[in-house]
Simulated scan of single mutants.
Amino acid sequence: MDEQRAQEIAHSPDMKHVTHGGTPIYIQHVDEENGTARIFPVDQPEKEQSVSVNSLMEH
Rank of each mutant, 00 (worst) to 15 (best):
P41K: 02
A6F: 03
E8F: 01
M1S: 05
S52M: 10
A10E: 09
S55P: 06
H11P: 00
V18A: 02
D43E: 14
H59G: 09
V30C: 05
M1L: 09
E48M: 15
D31W: 03
P41F: 02
P41N: 04
T36K: 09
D31Y: 02
N54F: 11
H20A: 03
M1D: 03
T19L: 03
D14Q: 14
E58S: 08
E8N: 08
N34F: 07
V51I: 11
I27C: 06
H20W: 04
V42A: 07
N34L: 14
V53K: 00
A10K: 00
E32S: 11
I39P: 02
S55T: 15
V42Y: 08
Q28A: 09
E8D: 10
A10T: 08
S55N: 12
T19C: 02
F40H: 15
E33L: 11
T19Q: 02
I25C: 03
I39C: 00
D14V: 11
M57I: 06
K47S: 11
K16G: 00
H11C: 09
K47V: 06
R5N: 08
V18C: 01
G21W: 02
G22K: 01
E46F: 05
P41E: 01
Q7F: 15
H11Y: 13
V42H: 06
I27V: 14
Q49S: 15
A6Y: 03
A10Q: 08
V53F: 01
V53R: 05
R5V: 12
D14G: 04
G22H: 01
H11F: 13
